[in-house]
Amino acid sequence: MSQRMILNETSYFGAGAIDNLVKEVKGRNLGKALVVTDKELVKYQVVAKVTQLLDNHGLPYAVFDETVANPTIEVVQKGIQAYKAEAANYIIAIGGGSPIDTAKAIGIIINNPEYADVRSLEGAVATAKRSVPIIAIPTTAGTAAEVTINYVITDAENKRKFVCVDPHDIPVVAIVDPVMMSSMPKSLTAATGMDALTHAIEGYITKAAWELTDMLHLKAIEIISRSLRGAVNNEPIGREGMALGQYIAGMGFSNVGLGLVHGMAHPLGAFYDTPHGVANAILLPTVMAYNAGYTGEKYRDIAKAMGVTGTEAMSLQEARNAAVAAVRQLSLDVGIPAHLREVGVKEVDIPALAISAFEDVCTDGNPRDTSIAEIDKLYRAIY
Protein backbone atom coordinates (compact mmCIF):
# COMPACT_ATOMS: atom_id res chain seq x y z
CA MET A 1 0.00 0.00 0.00
CA SER A 2 1.41 3.40 -0.96
CA GLN A 3 1.32 6.46 1.31
CA ARG A 4 1.45 10.17 0.47
CA MET A 5 3.07 13.08 2.31
CA ILE A 6 2.55 16.72 1.24
CA LEU A 7 4.33 19.55 3.05
CA ASN A 8 5.28 23.18 2.46
CA GLU A 9 7.96 24.11 -0.03
CA THR A 10 9.69 26.25 2.60
CA SER A 11 9.18 26.92 6.31
CA TYR A 12 11.02 29.09 8.83
CA PHE A 13 10.98 28.62 12.61
CA GLY A 14 12.05 30.46 15.73
CA ALA A 15 12.17 33.98 17.10
CA GLY A 16 12.97 36.41 14.31
CA ALA A 17 11.85 34.06 11.53
CA ILE A 18 9.62 36.84 10.20
CA ASP A 19 12.73 38.59 8.86
CA ASN A 20 12.83 35.99 6.07
CA LEU A 21 9.63 37.37 4.54
CA VAL A 22 11.30 39.97 2.36
CA LYS A 23 13.84 37.48 1.01
CA GLU A 24 11.05 35.12 0.00
CA VAL A 25 8.92 37.81 -1.64
CA LYS A 26 11.83 39.20 -3.63
CA GLY A 27 13.29 35.82 -4.48
CA ARG A 28 9.99 34.61 -5.86
CA ASN A 29 9.29 37.92 -7.64
CA LEU A 30 5.76 37.88 -6.28
CA GLY A 31 4.51 41.38 -7.05
CA LYS A 32 1.66 42.88 -5.01
CA ALA A 33 0.26 41.14 -1.92
CA LEU A 34 -3.22 40.97 -0.54
CA VAL A 35 -2.70 40.76 3.22
CA VAL A 36 -5.55 38.61 4.56
CA THR A 37 -6.11 39.10 8.29
CA ASP A 38 -8.67 40.34 10.84
CA LYS A 39 -9.45 43.66 12.47
CA GLU A 40 -8.20 42.64 15.92
CA LEU A 41 -4.74 41.83 14.60
CA VAL A 42 -4.68 45.19 12.82
CA LYS A 43 -5.88 46.99 15.96
CA TYR A 44 -3.22 45.47 18.18
CA GLN A 45 -0.39 46.19 15.72
CA VAL A 46 0.37 42.54 14.97
CA VAL A 47 -0.15 43.07 11.25
CA ALA A 48 2.09 46.13 11.43
CA LYS A 49 5.06 43.87 12.25
CA VAL A 50 4.64 42.47 8.75
CA THR A 51 3.54 45.51 6.78
CA GLN A 52 6.42 47.55 8.21
CA LEU A 53 8.83 45.08 6.66
CA LEU A 54 7.06 45.43 3.32
CA ASP A 55 7.07 49.23 3.59
CA ASN A 56 10.77 49.32 4.45
CA HIS A 57 11.60 47.47 1.25
CA GLY A 58 9.08 49.15 -1.05
CA LEU A 59 7.00 46.00 -1.53
CA PRO A 60 3.39 46.75 -2.54
CA TYR A 61 0.38 45.37 -0.69
CA ALA A 62 -3.25 45.97 0.25
CA VAL A 63 -4.95 44.81 3.44
CA PHE A 64 -8.16 42.78 3.60
CA ASP A 65 -9.06 42.61 7.30
CA GLU A 66 -12.62 41.28 7.17
CA THR A 67 -11.95 37.68 8.14
CA VAL A 68 -13.87 36.35 11.13
CA ALA A 69 -13.67 33.38 13.48
CA ASN A 70 -15.21 30.40 11.68
CA PRO A 71 -14.86 32.10 8.27
CA THR A 72 -17.97 32.15 6.11
CA ILE A 73 -18.71 31.78 2.42
CA GLU A 74 -19.56 35.48 2.28
CA VAL A 75 -16.21 36.53 3.73
CA VAL A 76 -14.37 34.39 1.19
CA GLN A 77 -16.31 35.99 -1.64
CA LYS A 78 -15.51 39.47 -0.32
CA GLY A 79 -11.86 38.51 -0.22
CA ILE A 80 -11.98 37.38 -3.84
CA GLN A 81 -13.45 40.74 -4.82
CA ALA A 82 -10.70 42.53 -2.89
CA TYR A 83 -7.96 40.44 -4.52
CA LYS A 84 -9.26 41.32 -7.97
CA ALA A 85 -9.89 44.99 -7.17
CA GLU A 86 -6.35 45.42 -5.85
CA ALA A 87 -4.81 43.55 -8.81
CA ALA A 88 -2.91 41.40 -6.32
CA ASN A 89 -0.53 38.63 -7.37
CA TYR A 90 -0.20 36.64 -4.14
CA ILE A 91 -1.50 36.46 -0.56
CA ILE A 92 0.13 36.99 2.80
CA ALA A 93 -2.13 35.38 5.42
CA ILE A 94 -1.61 36.67 8.96
CA GLY A 95 -3.51 35.15 11.87
CA GLY A 96 -4.84 31.89 13.19
CA GLY A 97 -6.72 29.25 11.26
CA SER A 98 -9.48 31.62 10.21
CA PRO A 99 -7.42 34.09 8.13
CA ILE A 100 -5.25 31.30 6.71
CA ASP A 101 -8.30 29.19 5.80
CA THR A 102 -9.91 32.25 4.22
CA ALA A 103 -6.73 32.87 2.24
CA LYS A 104 -6.68 29.28 1.00
CA ALA A 105 -10.25 29.52 -0.30
CA ILE A 106 -9.54 32.87 -1.96
CA GLY A 107 -6.35 31.57 -3.56
CA ILE A 108 -7.97 28.42 -4.90
CA ILE A 109 -10.97 30.22 -6.38
CA ILE A 110 -8.89 32.94 -8.03
CA ASN A 111 -7.16 30.26 -10.11
CA ASN A 112 -10.19 27.94 -10.30
CA PRO A 113 -13.16 30.33 -10.78
CA GLU A 114 -15.58 27.48 -11.46
CA TYR A 115 -15.69 27.04 -7.66
CA ALA A 116 -16.80 30.63 -6.97
CA ASP A 117 -19.87 29.43 -5.07
CA VAL A 118 -17.38 28.12 -2.41
CA ARG A 119 -19.73 25.28 -1.37
CA SER A 120 -18.54 23.14 -4.29
CA LEU A 121 -15.07 23.01 -2.70
CA GLU A 122 -16.32 20.74 0.07
CA GLY A 123 -14.52 17.44 0.48
CA ALA A 124 -11.59 16.16 -1.55
CA VAL A 125 -12.07 18.21 -4.70
CA ALA A 126 -9.68 17.78 -7.63
CA THR A 127 -9.08 21.39 -8.57
CA ALA A 128 -7.18 21.86 -11.83
CA LYS A 129 -4.76 24.59 -10.77
CA ARG A 130 -2.72 25.45 -7.70
CA SER A 131 -3.76 28.34 -5.51
CA VAL A 132 -2.14 31.69 -6.06
CA PRO A 133 1.04 31.78 -3.94
CA ILE A 134 0.31 32.08 -0.21
CA ILE A 135 2.80 33.02 2.48
CA ALA A 136 1.28 32.01 5.81
CA ILE A 137 2.30 33.72 9.04
CA PRO A 138 0.45 32.13 11.97
CA THR A 139 -0.22 34.21 15.08
CA THR A 140 -1.70 31.31 17.04
CA ALA A 141 -0.17 27.95 17.92
CA GLY A 142 -2.91 25.50 17.16
CA THR A 143 -4.42 25.01 13.73
CA ALA A 144 -1.22 24.38 11.73
CA ALA A 145 -3.14 25.74 8.75
CA GLU A 146 0.18 26.95 7.35
CA VAL A 147 1.29 23.35 6.66
CA THR A 148 -1.96 21.51 5.95
CA ILE A 149 -3.92 20.76 2.79
CA ASN A 150 -7.20 21.35 4.64
CA TYR A 151 -9.36 24.35 5.33
CA VAL A 152 -12.78 24.80 6.92
CA ILE A 153 -15.51 27.20 5.81
CA THR A 154 -18.82 27.95 7.52
CA ASP A 155 -22.09 27.85 5.59
CA ALA A 156 -23.95 30.27 7.86
CA GLU A 157 -27.19 29.93 5.92
CA ASN A 158 -27.38 26.19 6.59
CA LYS A 159 -25.66 26.23 10.02
CA ARG A 160 -22.87 23.89 9.01
CA LYS A 161 -19.11 23.87 8.58
CA PHE A 162 -17.53 22.00 5.72
CA VAL A 163 -14.00 20.73 5.32
CA CYS A 164 -12.11 21.20 2.06
CA VAL A 165 -9.14 18.93 1.30
CA ASP A 166 -6.96 20.02 -1.60
CA PRO A 167 -3.20 19.59 -2.16
CA HIS A 168 -3.36 22.71 -4.31
CA ASP A 169 -4.20 24.97 -1.36
CA ILE A 170 -1.04 24.51 0.75
CA PRO A 171 0.93 27.73 1.32
CA VAL A 172 4.27 27.87 -0.49
CA VAL A 173 5.97 29.47 2.52
CA ALA A 174 5.22 29.22 6.25
CA ILE A 175 6.86 31.59 8.72
CA VAL A 176 6.37 30.20 12.23
CA ASP A 177 7.70 32.91 14.53
CA PRO A 178 6.74 32.65 18.23
CA VAL A 179 7.21 36.41 18.59
CA MET A 180 4.20 36.86 16.29
CA MET A 181 2.23 34.79 18.83
CA SER A 182 3.30 36.62 21.98
CA SER A 183 0.29 38.94 22.05
CA MET A 184 -2.22 36.08 22.21
CA PRO A 185 -4.33 36.29 25.39
CA LYS A 186 -4.29 33.34 27.79
CA SER A 187 -7.70 32.05 26.75
CA LEU A 188 -6.80 31.96 23.05
CA THR A 189 -3.42 30.40 23.77
CA ALA A 190 -5.12 27.66 25.79
CA ALA A 191 -7.81 27.00 23.19
CA THR A 192 -5.48 26.88 20.20
CA GLY A 193 -2.99 24.77 22.14
CA MET A 194 -5.64 22.20 22.97
CA ASP A 195 -6.64 22.23 19.31
CA ALA A 196 -3.04 21.30 18.45
CA LEU A 197 -3.07 18.50 21.02
CA THR A 198 -6.32 17.20 19.54
CA HIS A 199 -4.73 17.18 16.07
CA ALA A 200 -1.79 15.18 17.39
CA ILE A 201 -3.88 12.64 19.31
CA GLU A 202 -6.55 12.16 16.64
CA GLY A 203 -3.88 11.95 13.94
CA TYR A 204 -2.09 9.27 15.96
CA ILE A 205 -5.14 7.03 16.34
CA THR A 206 -6.98 7.70 13.08
CA LYS A 207 -7.62 4.77 10.75
CA ALA A 208 -5.14 6.06 8.16
CA ALA A 209 -2.22 6.52 10.60
CA TRP A 210 1.11 4.93 9.63
CA GLU A 211 4.67 4.87 10.90
CA LEU A 212 5.87 8.21 9.53
CA THR A 213 2.85 10.12 10.80
CA ASP A 214 2.95 8.21 14.10
CA MET A 215 6.46 9.55 14.63
CA LEU A 216 5.31 13.11 13.99
CA HIS A 217 2.22 12.88 16.17
CA LEU A 218 3.99 11.35 19.17
CA LYS A 219 6.66 14.05 19.07
CA ALA A 220 3.98 16.71 18.77
CA ILE A 221 2.12 15.31 21.80
CA GLU A 222 5.36 15.41 23.79
CA ILE A 223 6.25 19.00 22.83
CA ILE A 224 2.72 20.35 23.29
CA SER A 225 2.26 18.64 26.66
CA ARG A 226 5.44 20.15 28.09
CA SER A 227 4.96 23.59 26.48
CA LEU A 228 1.29 24.59 26.71
CA ARG A 229 1.17 25.60 30.38
CA GLY A 230 4.22 27.81 29.87
CA ALA A 231 2.80 29.31 26.69
CA VAL A 232 -0.42 30.22 28.50
CA ASN A 233 1.78 32.12 30.99
CA ASN A 234 3.52 33.80 28.00
CA GLU A 235 6.88 32.23 28.76
CA PRO A 236 9.15 32.41 25.67
CA ILE A 237 10.23 28.78 25.89
CA GLY A 238 6.56 27.72 26.05
CA ARG A 239 5.66 29.92 23.09
CA GLU A 240 8.51 28.51 21.02
CA GLY A 241 7.61 24.94 21.94
CA MET A 242 3.98 25.40 21.00
CA ALA A 243 4.87 27.06 17.70
CA LEU A 244 6.91 24.01 16.76
CA GLY A 245 4.65 21.35 18.29
CA GLN A 246 1.52 22.50 16.51
CA TYR A 247 3.36 22.60 13.19
CA ILE A 248 4.66 19.04 13.62
CA ALA A 249 1.11 17.88 14.40
CA GLY A 250 -0.02 19.57 11.19
CA MET A 251 2.63 17.76 9.17
CA GLY A 252 1.03 14.52 10.30
CA PHE A 253 -2.73 14.98 10.42
CA SER A 254 -2.88 16.88 7.14
CA ASN A 255 -1.85 13.65 5.45
CA VAL A 256 -3.92 11.08 7.38
CA GLY A 257 -7.00 12.92 8.65
CA LEU A 258 -8.64 13.27 12.05
CA GLY A 259 -11.63 11.74 13.85
CA LEU A 260 -14.79 12.13 15.87
CA VAL A 261 -13.60 14.98 18.11
CA HIS A 262 -13.33 17.22 15.07
CA GLY A 263 -16.49 15.77 13.59
CA MET A 264 -18.36 16.82 16.73
CA ALA A 265 -16.56 20.16 17.11
CA HIS A 266 -17.40 21.49 13.65
CA PRO A 267 -21.18 21.67 14.25
CA LEU A 268 -20.58 23.57 17.51
CA GLY A 269 -18.75 26.25 15.54
CA ALA A 270 -21.50 26.38 12.93
CA PHE A 271 -24.39 26.51 15.41
CA TYR A 272 -22.93 28.74 18.14
CA ASP A 273 -19.67 30.18 16.78
CA THR A 274 -17.89 28.22 19.52
CA PRO A 275 -14.11 28.72 19.26
CA HIS A 276 -12.80 25.60 17.56
CA GLY A 277 -10.06 24.89 20.08
CA VAL A 278 -12.45 25.20 23.02
CA ALA A 279 -14.89 22.80 21.38
CA ASN A 280 -12.12 20.26 20.74
CA ALA A 281 -10.77 20.55 24.28
CA ILE A 282 -14.16 19.97 25.90
CA LEU A 283 -14.85 16.96 23.70
CA LEU A 284 -11.41 15.33 23.63
CA PRO A 285 -11.26 13.41 26.97
CA THR A 286 -14.74 11.93 26.61
CA VAL A 287 -14.25 10.91 22.98
CA MET A 288 -10.85 9.44 23.86
CA ALA A 289 -12.52 7.27 26.49
CA TYR A 290 -15.14 6.22 23.92
CA ASN A 291 -12.41 5.21 21.44
CA ALA A 292 -10.04 3.57 23.92
CA GLY A 293 -10.90 -0.05 23.15
CA TYR A 294 -10.11 0.44 19.46
CA THR A 295 -6.60 1.86 19.77
CA GLY A 296 -4.38 -1.06 20.78
CA GLU A 297 -1.35 0.11 22.77
CA LYS A 298 -1.45 3.66 21.45
CA TYR A 299 -2.88 5.24 24.60
CA ARG A 300 0.10 3.90 26.53
CA ASP A 301 2.33 5.80 24.09
CA ILE A 302 0.19 8.93 24.50
CA ALA A 303 0.37 8.76 28.30
CA LYS A 304 4.15 8.36 28.18
CA ALA A 305 4.54 11.24 25.72
CA MET A 306 2.48 13.43 28.06
CA GLY A 307 4.87 12.74 30.92
CA VAL A 308 2.97 10.06 32.82
CA THR A 309 5.47 7.87 34.70
CA GLY A 310 5.33 4.11 35.13
CA THR A 311 3.32 3.44 31.99
CA GLU A 312 5.26 0.25 31.20
CA ALA A 313 4.06 -1.38 34.42
CA MET A 314 0.42 -0.45 33.88
CA SER A 315 -2.22 -2.77 32.53
CA LEU A 316 -3.59 -1.74 29.16
CA GLN A 317 -6.76 -0.34 30.76
CA GLU A 318 -4.73 1.57 33.35
CA ALA A 319 -2.59 3.09 30.59
CA ARG A 320 -5.68 4.10 28.64
CA ASN A 321 -7.19 5.70 31.73
CA ALA A 322 -3.91 7.49 32.40
CA ALA A 323 -3.85 8.99 28.90
CA VAL A 324 -7.40 10.29 29.23
CA ALA A 325 -6.67 11.66 32.71
CA ALA A 326 -3.53 13.45 31.50
CA VAL A 327 -5.49 15.18 28.73
CA ARG A 328 -8.28 16.13 31.12
CA GLN A 329 -5.77 17.57 33.62
CA LEU A 330 -3.96 19.63 31.01
CA SER A 331 -7.26 21.05 29.79
CA LEU A 332 -8.21 21.93 33.38
CA ASP A 333 -4.81 23.48 34.08
CA VAL A 334 -5.10 25.91 31.17
CA GLY A 335 -8.65 26.95 32.02
CA ILE A 336 -10.81 25.16 29.46
CA PRO A 337 -14.47 24.71 30.50
CA ALA A 338 -15.50 21.14 31.29
CA HIS A 339 -19.05 21.12 29.89
CA LEU A 340 -20.76 22.16 26.68
CA ARG A 341 -23.46 24.10 28.50
CA GLU A 342 -20.74 26.47 29.72
CA VAL A 343 -20.10 27.62 26.14
CA GLY A 344 -23.74 28.16 25.18
CA VAL A 345 -24.70 24.80 23.73
CA LYS A 346 -28.46 24.15 23.92
CA GLU A 347 -29.63 20.67 24.84
CA VAL A 348 -32.54 20.97 22.42
CA ASP A 349 -30.06 21.20 19.53
CA ILE A 350 -28.23 17.97 20.34
CA PRO A 351 -30.17 15.76 17.86
CA ALA A 352 -29.32 18.15 15.01
CA LEU A 353 -25.71 18.44 16.18
CA ALA A 354 -25.40 14.65 16.20
CA ILE A 355 -26.65 14.35 12.62
CA SER A 356 -24.23 17.04 11.45
CA ALA A 357 -21.31 15.43 13.30
CA PHE A 358 -22.09 12.01 11.84
CA GLU A 359 -22.01 13.49 8.34
CA ASP A 360 -18.77 15.43 8.91
CA VAL A 361 -15.84 14.30 6.76
CA CYS A 362 -13.57 13.93 9.81
CA THR A 363 -15.81 11.37 11.50
CA ASP A 364 -14.95 8.66 8.96
CA GLY A 365 -11.37 8.65 10.22
CA ASN A 366 -12.33 7.76 13.77
CA PRO A 367 -10.84 4.44 14.96
CA ARG A 368 -14.23 3.34 16.26
CA ASP A 369 -17.17 3.33 13.87
CA THR A 370 -20.06 5.29 15.31
CA SER A 371 -23.68 6.25 14.75
CA ILE A 372 -25.96 9.25 15.19
CA ALA A 373 -27.39 7.71 18.35
CA GLU A 374 -23.96 7.19 19.90
CA ILE A 375 -22.84 10.72 19.02
CA ASP A 376 -26.04 12.03 20.61
CA LYS A 377 -25.11 10.19 23.81
CA LEU A 378 -21.59 11.62 23.75
CA TYR A 379 -22.87 15.19 23.42
CA ARG A 380 -25.25 14.60 26.32
CA ALA A 381 -22.50 13.07 28.46
CA ILE A 382 -20.45 16.24 28.08
CA TYR A 383 -23.39 18.65 28.23
Rank of each mutant, 00 (worst) to 15 (best):
T198P: 03
F253P: 01
E202K: 13
P275K: 13
A289L: 10
M264Y: 06
P275M: 09
Y204W: 03
L268Q: 04
A191S: 14
I237C: 08
I201C: 07
G252V: 05
L283T: 12
V287P: 00
P275F: 10
H262V: 04
N255W: 08
A281P: 02
L216C: 12
L197I: 12
G263M: 08
D214N: 15
P285E: 07
I248S: 05
Q246R: 12
T198G: 06
A200T: 10
Y294L: 07
T274M: 12
N280Y: 00
Y290I: 03
G193C: 01
R239V: 00
E235A: 09
I248K: 10
L284Q: 06
P275C: 07
G277W: 06
K207C: 10
E211A: 14
I282K: 12
N280C: 15
H199R: 13
G203M: 03
G252T: 04
H266I: 06
I223V: 15
G277L: 08
M251R: 13
A270D: 04
Q246F: 13
Y272I: 08
I237D: 13
Q246G: 09
M264S: 03
A289M: 08
L212K: 11
A292Y: 07
A190P: 03
G238N: 10
K219H: 15
K207Y: 09
M264H: 01
H276Q: 09
G193I: 00
Y294I: 02
A289F: 03
A200S: 12
F253V: 05
F253I: 06
R239N: 01
M194Q: 05
Y294K: 14
G259K: 11
G230T: 05
P236V: 10
G203P: 00
A289I: 01
T274E: 02
G250F: 04
Y272F: 12
S227D: 01
P236D: 13
I223F: 03
H217K: 09
M264L: 03
E235I: 09
A292W: 04
Q246M: 14
Y294N: 15
N280T: 01
G252H: 08
L260Q: 08
H262S: 06
T213S: 10
V261G: 05
D214K: 11
D214P: 01
M288I: 07
L216I: 00
H262A: 08
T198S: 14
G230Y: 12
L283D: 07
L212M: 14
P236A: 14
I205P: 02
A208P: 03
G257K: 14
A243N: 09
H262F: 07
I237W: 11
L197M: 14
F253S: 09
D214V: 05
E202D: 08
I205F: 11
G193P: 00
T286K: 14
Y204Q: 07
K207T: 13
M194H: 10
G193L: 05
G250W: 04
A209S: 15
G193K: 06
G293V: 04
G238Y: 07
P275Y: 07
